[in-house]
């Protein structure tokens, strides 16, 4: 050993990975509980997914197949740069296909395709504490978690209804895990909350700046908080995807011109491409072959 810093698989040194894996194991043992960990500086700014990247680096092996999505898309800046990062530092196989991936790092979406046993979904989390904007003191929020005092969470939902007539929280919608911890599912649209419930895949959440890791082991009970007379509902869309005609999926609005033209397309690009390859077509879609030409 020369004692100099040299190349190590997946960027982080082995001791750091060990520390993160310990935090992950603890998080899996206590679903929904935020485990503190010694977050490292990563070669990207906070807010770009440093928590997710560290979790991915700690669990990544040479035979893994990695997929990275940003708001459901494989081809946006965040996704492209993180994917390139792991190709460079770990030389792992990457893919955009959900079903081929063993590890999927995500920013704010869960793929439309059902995840299966053996897959790991890694979330990038900006603010892990669901009570943060209601109770600024960390000492107090920890005490509230310890004693499961979650009345305050419903005060937030009450305020929503009082102001808007319905629960207007559409993302980072609080959930209760295994009837115990209230958890912030990261800023995923509430549309994806039901997918977390009893998921076959392991779900890991990493918050780099806030130095917290939490987890949902496979087949965990995840319930979105609500009121008896204002039950939890997910967003619904009036029209199917303009490109592939899919219904019951989460859509993004795309502005087409400066005269008010717009269309709604699948936020999950892989899912949309897959459907078009199978021959499904939306009212503004073009068959995949023509588009390539």
């Amino acid at each position: 050993m020369s004692g100099l810093a040299t190349y190590n698989f997946a960027y982080l040194d082995e001791q750091t990975k060990r520390m993160i894996r310990r935090a992950i194991l603890k998080a899996i043992a206590i679903p929904g509980y935020q485990v503190p960990f010694a977050s490292r500086e990563m070669p990207m700014p906070y807010g770009w997914g440093t928590g997710g990247v560290q979790v991915t680096a700690a669990i990544l092996g040479p035979t893994d197949v990695l997929k990275v999505i940003d708001q459901g898309a494989d081809d946006t800046t965040n996704a492209v740069s993180i994917r390139a990062f792991f190709q460079k530092v770990a030389n792992v196989e990457v893919t955009t296909r959900t079903k081929d991936a063993t590890i999927i790092q995500t920013r704010h979406r869960i793929p439309e395709e059902k995840l299966t046993e053996g897959q790991v979904l890694v979330y990038q989390v900006p603010i892990p504490e669901p009570l943060r904007f209601l109770e600024p003191r960390e000492t107090e929020t920890r005490k509230m978690h310890a004693l499961s005092e979650y009345g305050l969470m419903h005060v937030k939902l009450y305020e929503d209804i009082a102001r808007n007539g319905h629960i207007a929280t559409t993302y980072a919608y609080p959930v209760k895990v295994e009837g115990r911890y209230v958890m912030d599912p990261s800023p995923t649209p509430k549309f994806d909350n039901p997918k977390m419930h009893m998921s076959e895949a392991l779900q890991l959440f990493g918050a780099g700046r806030e130095k917290r890791i939490y987890a949902l082991p496979p087949f965990t009970d995840v319930v979105s908080l609500d009121f008896d007379d204002h039950p939890f509902t997910v967003q619904s869309f009036e029209k199917p995807c303009a490109l592939c005609g899919a219904e019951g999926v989460y859509l993004d609005e795309v502005v087409l011109d400066d005269r008010g033209g717009r269309m709604f397309v699948c936020s999950d690009t892989d899912y949309c491409e897959d459907r078009r390859a199978q021959g499904f077509l939306g009212d503004q879609g073009v068959p995949l072959k023509e588009a390539a030409e």
């Binding site: 005092e149 005060v155 009450y158 305020e159 102001r163």
Partner: peptide, 24 residues
């Protein structure tokens, strides 16, 4: 920073009331 109604209803929600109409 929360409405009067939520201020008054907070204790009810803290002890497990989950019906918006009744709390209000």
């Amino acid at each position: 920073t929360v409405s009067a109604g939520a201020n008054v209803g907070e204790r009810l929600m803290a002890i497990g009331h989950r019906h918006y109409g009744e709390i209000r």
